[in-house]
Simulated assay, not measured.
Amino acid sequence: MGGKPRKTVSSNRREVGAALRSFRKRAGFERLDDVAGFIDTSAVTMGRIEKGEAPIDRANLGVLADKYGLNDHERAALMELARQTRGRRGVFPAFFSVKTRALLELESEASDLLVVNIDVIPAHFQTERYIQALFDGNGEGLPQKEVDRLKSVRMDRQAVLTQPKPPKVRAIIHETALRLPVGGNEVMHEQLLHLAEVCDLPNVEIQIQPAADGAYPHMGISFLLMRLDNDPSTDRVQVESAGDGIYRDRSTTTEPYRLSWERKRVAALSLPASKALILDVARGFAPDPDS
């Protein structure tokens, strides 16, 4: 009984440490030696802070926020995230940019990623041209320079699939995502062939929910569940549906998503049948050899 709360607090510290690591890299400090002196500590201790193995007090957190060039919003969000390490967990707004930064940084340390997507190919499997087409069609009108930056972040994120000791990535994708002509036939043909190749990675499992089945368990919800150290108490859920844009990281709020994923997994096609459907849909987007 006594060990579990400490594990939970350490789990929250990992998010603070991951956010600090991400901001350090953004600021151009590649080595821990470059920043440890800012808070009068050693590189070893700085490394433990970034891994969530050691706490950092509010004053030193403020020093690092200044040195790393955080803006007012990022600084306030980082302080709030640190406050969560003292026992307040549960639900976070999706615009919590520091939380997002921490979770993206932690993906490389995850043991499991469970993904559910309805109308978009999951980010970890997207091709560069598919990503560009998504930004072109989302109506936000972002400058191309910003789109290029976001594309780079998303492509870099995919490195977790092939890193040493990669997480187990299991995805359930609705057939709708395969058939929506994002970017046109050429882009979709390339995207679906890439998705079929990803199916062959030993740490990746992709299942398709067929449209012909009609209703399926827990319709209308897309989410990503991340687990650290094969420990359910570390589960974090990012809900991506427009009506529920929040993060959850308390077991009472993450468990329903794990159960939802299991029910969806049972309802979806088998792994071989899923890959066969992906390739079949890809053929429909293939260029006409006679044209």
Rank of each mutant, 00 (worst) to 15 (best):
C199P: 10
L134H: 01
I206E: 05
V120N: 08
E175P: 08
S222P: 06
M188V: 00
R88W: 12
V198L: 05
E53G: 11
P287R: 03
L277M: 14
S42E: 01
I246G: 01
D229K: 12
R88A: 14
R149C: 08
K168R: 15
V116N: 09
R129C: 06
Y257Q: 11
S291T: 13
A171E: 02
A59S: 15
A286F: 03
E240C: 03
L150Q: 12
V63R: 11
L259P: 01
T176Q: 06
M188E: 04
G243A: 03
G183A: 03
R86E: 15
S274Q: 03
I172G: 08
R157S: 01
A212V: 12
H73G: 02
F285L: 07
T234Q: 00
V182F: 00
F125V: 06
R170P: 00
D119S: 09
V237W: 00
R248F: 10
D244N: 15
E109N: 13
P232G: 09
L224D: 10
L150H: 10
L81V: 06
I118H: 05
N138R: 07
S11Q: 13
L20E: 08
D229L: 01
Q163S: 08
D249L: 04
D229R: 12
M226A: 12
M46W: 04
Y68A: 03
D57A: 01
E128P: 02
P167H: 11
R250A: 15
L61Y: 03
V160I: 15
I121T: 12
I278Y: 01
T176Y: 02
V187L: 07
V187Q: 04
Q126G: 03
Y247V: 04
L192G: 02
G284K: 05
Y216L: 03
V116W: 10
A36H: 02
D288Y: 12
L269Q: 06
L103P: 00
P93Y: 07
Q84T: 12
V91F: 11
P167G: 09
P167D: 08
A242G: 05
V204M: 01
P210C: 08
Q191S: 07
V63D: 05
S42R: 03
S108R: 15
A123H: 03
T252Q: 11
S10W: 06
V116E: 02
D200M: 05
A43K: 13
L81K: 08
E30M: 10
L20Y: 10
G284R: 03
Q84M: 15
A82M: 11
A123L: 11
G52H: 02
Q191L: 06
M46V: 04
I173T: 01
S10G: 06
L103W: 12
S111V: 12
G87Q: 09
G284T: 03
K67H: 09
L20I: 10
G37Q: 11
V116P: 00
A212M: 06
Q144P: 02
M46K: 04
G243H: 08
G28V: 07
G245W: 06
D213L: 13
Q238M: 14
M155H: 01
G69F: 04
E175Y: 06
L70C: 09
E30S: 14
